[in-house]
Design a protein around this nucleic acid. Structure first.
Ligand code: FES
Ligand code: FES
Lengths: 144, 144
DNA sequence: TTAAAAAAGGACAATTTTGTCCGTTATTAT
DNA sequence: ATAATAACGGACAAAATTGTCCTTTTTTAA
């Protein structure tokens, strides 16, 4: 469904959000440990998210990654997915035709668009704040 | 969403079904042309589908690929996707945890499972026969 | 019976995705 | 000021996916 890069990006952002809520900045090493992802690869993804102003990065000692508190409930998963995987998941054709086009649809167009739009709406409606909700109390997990 | 292999597999199966309905057997070359796919790569996928008894293949002159007429409305997209991409799309975790597990869910579990199950049901409920329905009359397309 | 047709299958190649390494830059604490 | 810290960025490497080529096997039609 999502690329590995995107999975790591979502999990990392969620963990950063969780830490930011508690007023903490967190380092690459810590993030990779907490979401069980390869560190250097995760670094690339965080750089990408930082360039897209989804997360903030601070260099130097006591530096790390964070998200402005008042942004945490404004940032939606859709922005993260878009920054990393682009818009193919939102507008692409299920059978790989160059573009999805209702006027010259592929045989799964109708059914596929329904599902794709559900996914899109889900991502657009899910904020990082919501993502963090169950983590502290052990209702949800970023790794196992 | 689906791999290229899977996209080609679905399109190829659909075209073979269409031809089979008209009592025709069709060749690799013809299939690749009609679905706009790389011929040799498509061959691999057709072999896989044949081994999984989703399509029939016949060697020699006037040979090619076909599907038993009475199977065309029994074969569902889910079988094709499963043969090519496996079951990750049906049971995998949206954030890449080893398995999706409602008892130790990731933060998107509930919302993701809903979408994943919709996709699963859609694939299980869509037959090759249905896929061919609009093709002849130009309501749907396998390439553009 | 033989030549041609067509899928099967193995080896290889290109591309994309995923992942690593290491020097550079910015920042902070001492 | 300086040394340590931590992100940045570029080059590289491994793995997976996608795609090609060529020989073999099977079958048909002449
Ligand atoms: S044309 Fe294929 S999904 Fe819309
Ligand atoms: S645990 Fe992640 S989708 Fe179920």
């Amino acid at each position: 469904m999502f690329s590995k890069a995107c999975e790591y990006g979502i999990k990392a952002s969620t963990y950063i959000a969780l830490q930011s809520i508690e007023g903490k900045r967190t380092s690459l090493r810590d993030i990779a440990k907490k979401i069980d992802s390869p560190e250097a690869f995760t670094a690339k993804i965080l750089q990408l998210l930082a360039r897209n102003q989804i997360i903030d990065s601070v260099k130097g000692p006591s530096g790390g990654f964070q998200i402005e508190k008042d942004q945490i409930d404004k940032i939606k998963l859709s922005e993260i997915v878009y920054a990393i995987d682009g818009d193919n998941i939102y507008v692409g054709c299920g059978l790989g035709l160059k573009e999805c086009n209702a006027l010259k649809p592929c045989p799964v167009h109708e059914k596929f668009v329904a599902i794709r739009d559900n996914l899109k709406k889900m991502l657009e409606n899910t904020s990082l704040y919501e993502m963090t909700a169950g983590l502290e109390v052990g209702l949800t997990y970023l790794k196992r």
